[in-house]
Design a protein around this nucleic acid. Sequence first.
RNA 1: GGGCUGGUAGCUCAGCCGGCAGAGCAGCGGACUCUUAAUCCGCAGGUCGCGGGUUCGAAUCCCGCCCAGCCCA
Length: 570
Amino acid sequence: MEDSRLKKIEELRRRGINPYPYRFEISDFIGNVRKRFEREVPEGLRVRVRGKAKRVSRTEEGFMVRLSDEENVEILVFTKEEGLKPGEVYTFEGVLSRVEGKLSLVDAKLSEGEVESIKEIKSRFDSDPQNKEVSLAGRLVSLRSMGKAIFGHIQDLTGRIQIYVKKDVVGEEEFRLFNEIFDLGDIIGVKGKLFRTQTGELTVEVQSFRLLAKCLHPLPEKWHGLKDVEIRYRQRYLDLIANPDSRRTFLLRSRLISELRRFLDKKGFVEVETPILQPVASGANAKPFVTYHNYLEMNLYLRIAPELYLKRLIVGGFPRVYELGRNFRNEGVDRTHNPEFTMVEFYAAYWDYRDLMSFTEELLTYLLEKVVGKLKISYEGKELDFTPPFRRVRYFDLLKEKTGKDKEFFLRDLEGLKALAKELEIPNYEKLTHAKLLDKVFERVAEEDLVQPTFVIDFPKLLSPLAKTHREDTDLVERFELIVATYEIANAYTELNDPTDQKERFLQQLKEKEMGDEEAMEIDEDFIRALEYGMPPTAGEGIGIDRLVMLLTDTDTIRDVILFPHMRPQ
RNA sequence: GGGCUGGUAGCUCAGCCGGCAGAGCAGCGGACUCUUAAUCCGCAGGUCGCGGGUUCGAAUCCCGCCCAGCCCA
């Protein structure tokens, strides 16, 4: 911790100022204030401007130029043009956008010809705040002292705004106080009038200010942000303070979840909460975390899926239910796996898996339109097109296309399948059960190049102990997975509601377990009893939220979409 | 579990063929009433991840460990 900052706290207390006061009345969040005076720029609007380069700075990919007209009105220009010099006059053409709220020209190229005035463009999109009184609070993230006036920026989750503290306005004593007590990183509240500076930036002329919380540590670097991934995950608060991309990702995640709820609610689904501590961890193929209940003197398991409980609710007469929440799987951590992850599972009585396919298309297009505003997104350099209908391909058709072998081969020729697995260099292939072997071969040959949203349908029965037998082929079940950019985003089926069949499938799982598949599913006797009371025809689906957020934010690491990913203690 | 890469100031990074521990930002002092990666003058800042070894001398070479990332299992 910084000694000088601790001393300032002592100094404040001596002056009778509480460095950690109780409340501060804000008139609005910073982003909302900005929105009132900043019109949205239509997408793809190209403009050409001329001005003097006041500063040229290098960015990750190119340069940022502060371009200023004769009246000192400024616009930011992002360009890849080399060799630009401060003080020179340039003409740029580019796409008008807002970057951190500021009007900017992006993808700009040097150009010639008729130009629009910077001032005129800005006045079209940035309106005069007319000295509106505001009361704002946020973290002090920059400070530029000019002697008898100080500029700085304060930031909250919604945005950033410039503050201007003038000796004339606040008075000599308060001005000195501001200089003496504030450090970068402090949380402060300001009251004052909005105006625009000569360069056109929306600014609060501060009339009074107040320290709301002292920051005892220096902040990460203002320009490069916080890059060290270890610190970003261990001290996410610092990541959120320093990196706007990170704030954007988690805001998008929140919006997605809220829109998902809105959509399901609108469609008549009822949100429910089922046990996270379960006496039997079933409903998926995975190893559970074990915990111990002292009072009951028994082991309990953190759920690996809520499926069997949600179907009990269908039996109980809830026709449409969903649960959005955390599942836990006791396995390794890597780019696409975190031991706890978020899924939504929803079940609709009287539907089958075909109903769910069109429902999924509707759901995803709704979410994309609400959250990113378009159906074509870019992921790892590829364009993903979510315009329905999505491609549908049958499981064994896909395998046949990739390997030339048919369903009979994969289901009845175990030796042949082993030989194929060997050829594909699938590790430990000799130890795998038939079901696992098939699963691995499919992953290896089929999933790898499923980039555009694709429903893989009609899975083999031996991989799907909870799905209903296919109405046209008893080797298969009525199941689909939605695969996008090689990730499994959704998994769904017509639910098995015949208790006798279900019992047999569980017994088959028991055999798989005995043959060494540690992830084979556990029998849940009460679930079978529930089915015996009669579950209507039902279709159910699970969607992995973390991976969906990864797609929408063009992120290749699950840790970047989970606020506090699991790390080994330091 | 295996392989590779990394860990140096609060942050971003250089230094690594052994020889005084470096820069920018942040910080501290000073100048400056439209600055915005402000500018200008000056100053301070280190368990070089941890432990051991080699050496006259180790951030640098060797061994072990910890943490992280990537790849593989």
